[in-house]
Every structure is written in structure tokens, then in C-alpha cells.
């Protein structure tokens, strides 16, 4: 049963990889294994994890969302521009904008039947353009009074970084949605066999749109967290985040063909990416060379996890 063997591989390879990587980096640089360093690592991973969690809903259905980095950047700009006037409501506004953009992208994909990678590429362009226009192409640094509003995002709380707590809450939320709601079941069914889900009366289009809404909202939330951590908003703040986010989902063992995957796998994948990054910086690998490695890792992980029986003609 090759299908089952691949499934076992998908399930255990990522965890084993993570363990091995942690040990390797720990052996090279013993202070890496200090609880404090590990907590730092976790808080550095949080933004990537949130971004990847959102897009994993879409990938589970067998689609893709390429607009997330533009959405995250736009969200940081929204926060930076409105936190003065709106206070905490500006965070809500940013996340709502993410949900709205996900909804529009989802509709373009489902109603107009545009393949998701193009629809979201286009939406990403619209978002990036909007961010450039409203920010006048500038990075906006938060002033002292504005910084009072972002305290909930950074710094420790009872000794634990707040990013980690936020990440854990979102993990719990996403896990519940995926495992315990009809929606979670429907998107798994759509990814694993869209024709059968459709014939079983699942409202396929609606569920897909919801997945895009979640992806957009999570991306915006990741942008809010970034704005909080860097105390600024910028139309290019989250650039270079798309590839690591998708890589995190895929490296964790979720197939881009959809159907199999879970938020826990995305967590493992995000941690792998983070450990590799930290490890490479420790060893002194140039940041640009890291990009090369991530590109290669993405292709490799896709090659291992993809379910080729689902795509008779690979385009």
C-alpha cells in the first residue's frame, strides 16, 4: 500500500526532522538549547506560524493563497495609520480587511472559476498597490503614544513571550475548527475528493470561500503582530514571507494537492523553518543563501508529500 506508506512518511518525517535539526544545532551551539533561547525561537516563529496556519486552510482544500504577504503588509499599514484614531479597534479593522480581501479573492476563484493561484496573485497585486498608495510608499514608525496600544503583542507575560501565547491561542482555535466543526470536515473532504464532496451535497463553493476568508484574516493578524513587534507599518513589511509560509505548511507534511494535513503539522513545519534559519545564522550562512535553501527545501518537500494520483496531467 504505497498510499499508506506515503501517509506514514508525511506524518512522522517532519517531527523526526525537527528533532534531528534541534539536536544538530544544539550540538553546534549548546546555548541554543537553553529554555530562554528556545522561547525566543518560539516567539520568532509565531508570525510565520500564524501566516502559515491561515494558508493551510486553503491548501487543505487543494487551492493556494499567494496574497498573504501583501495582506500582512497592508494590515501593518492599516494599524500604523489608524491606531491613533481607532485605538484597539484598528487591530479589528485590519483583521476585518483581511477577511474582506479573502472573501473577495475566494469569490473571484469560486464564482469566476479562476484558478486560485492566479486569483490570489491578482488580489495580492491589488493589496500591494493599495498599501503603497495609502502609505505614500513610506514606512510608518509608531510614536510613543501609539506604542501603548501594541503592548499586548510583545514582551513576556508570566515569563512567556506574548507572541507564543497568541500563537497557542490561534493554534487551539484552528485545531478546533479543523477537527471539530462541519466546516473542517468539509474542507478536508473537498481536498481529498472534491467531486465526491460536491455529489454528497457539500456546498463546495461556500466552504472554499470561508477557507480564503480565514486565510486572509490570519494573514492580516500576522501583519498586526509584525507591526507590533517592529513598532512600524510598511507596504513591504511582510515581503519575503510568502515562501517560508508555504514552505512551512508543506514541510510539515500537508500535501499541496489537499485533503491531508492539520494545524499541528503546520506548527512542526514552521518550527523546522525557524530552526533551520537560526541554525544557519549560527553557522554563519549568509541570509541570501538561506533563501536559496528555502526554495530548494520547498520543491523537495512538495515532491515528497504530493499525491500524484490526484493529478492525472501535471500542469
Amino acid at each position: 500500500m504505497p498510499a499508506q506508506r506515503i501517509e506514514r512518511l508525511r506524518r512522522f518525517l517532519p517531527v523526526a526532522t525537527l528533532a534531528v535539526l534541534v539536536l544538530i544545532v544544539g550540538a553546534l551551539q549548546p546555548e541554543f538549547l537553553n529554555p530562554d533561547t528556545l522561547l525566543d525561537l518560539a516567539s520568532d516563529t509565531a508570525v510565520l506560524f500564524v501566516l502559515a496556519s491561515g494558508v493551510s486552510f486553503v491548501i487543505l482544500t487543494g487551492g493556494i493563497d499567494l496574497s498573504i504577504q501583501a495582506m500582512a503588509s497592508l494590515a501593518s499599514v492599516i494599524v500604523a495609520l489608524t491606531v491613533d484614531r481607532l485605538g484597539y479597534a484598528s487591530f479589528v479593522a485590519a483583521v476585518a480587511a483581511g477577511a474582506l480581501s479573502g472573501w473577495l479573492g475566494g469569490l473571484a476563484h469560486v464564482r469566476l472559476k479562476i484558478p486560485s493561484f492566479v486569483a490570489t496573485l491578482a488580489v495580492g497585486g491589488v493589496l500591494a498597490g493599495t498599501a503603497l498608495v495609502v502609505s505614500h510608499q513610506h514606512s510608518i514608525t509608531l510614536g510613543a503614544t501609539q506604542r501603548a496600544y501594541i503592548g499586548w503583542i510583545t514582551g513576556p507575560w508570566l515569563g512567556i513571550p506574548r507572541e507564543v501565547i497568541i500563537g497557542a491561542l490561534l493554534l487551539f482555535f484552528a485545531d478546533t475548527v479543523q477537527r471539530r466543526t462541519p466546516f473542517g470536515r468539509y474542507i478536508a473532504a473537498i481536498g481529498a475528493g472534491e467531486a465526491a464532496a460536491y455529489a454528497s451535497g457539500v456546498k463546495v463553493g461556500r466552504q472554499k470561500v470561508v477557507a480564503f476568508v480565514i486565510s486572509g484574516a490570519f494573514a492580516a493578524f500576522a501583519g498586526v503582530m509584525l507591526a507590533g513587534r517592529l513598532a512600524s507599518g510598511s507596504p513591504t513589511l511582510a515581503n519575503e514571507q510568502l515562501l517560508p509560509a508555504i514552505a512551512a505548511v508543506v514541510v510539515g507534511g500537508t500535501a499541496i494537492t489537499g485533503g491531508v494535513g492539520s494545524i499541528w503539522r503546520t506548527l512542526v513545519g514552521a518550527l523546522i523553518i525557524s530552526v533551520v534559519r537560526t541554525g544557519m545564522t549560527f553557522i554563519g550562512v549568509d541570509i541570501f543563501a538561506q533563501e536559496i535553501l528555502f526554495g530548494a527545501v520547498l520543491v523537495f518537500a512538495v515532491a515528497v508529500t504530493i499525491d500524484r494520483s490526484k493529478i492525472p496531467v501535471v500542469k
Binding site: 493556494i64 493561484f117 515562501l243 508555504i246 499541496i256 541570501f288 543563501a289 538561506q290 533563501e291 536559496i292 535553501l293 528555502f294 526554495g295 530548494a296 520547498l298 520543491v299 512538495v302 515532491a303 504530493i306 500524484r308 493529478i311 501535471v314 500542469k315
Partner: peptide
């Protein structure tokens, strides 16, 4: 047998990384 958009997403970053 990997969809082209995934392969080329990877090589996009590989090529940009080499340039950088």
C-alpha cells in the same frame, strides 16, 4: 511530476537568492 507553479515558486527564490 510537481505542478509548475510550485517548482517555479521555488526556483524564483533560488535564483533571487543566488543573485543576492
Amino acid at each position: 511530476r510537481i505542478p509548475s507553479f510550485m517548482v517555479t515558486l521555488g526556483t524564483w527564490f533560488i535564483a533571487a537568492g543566488i543573485a543576492n
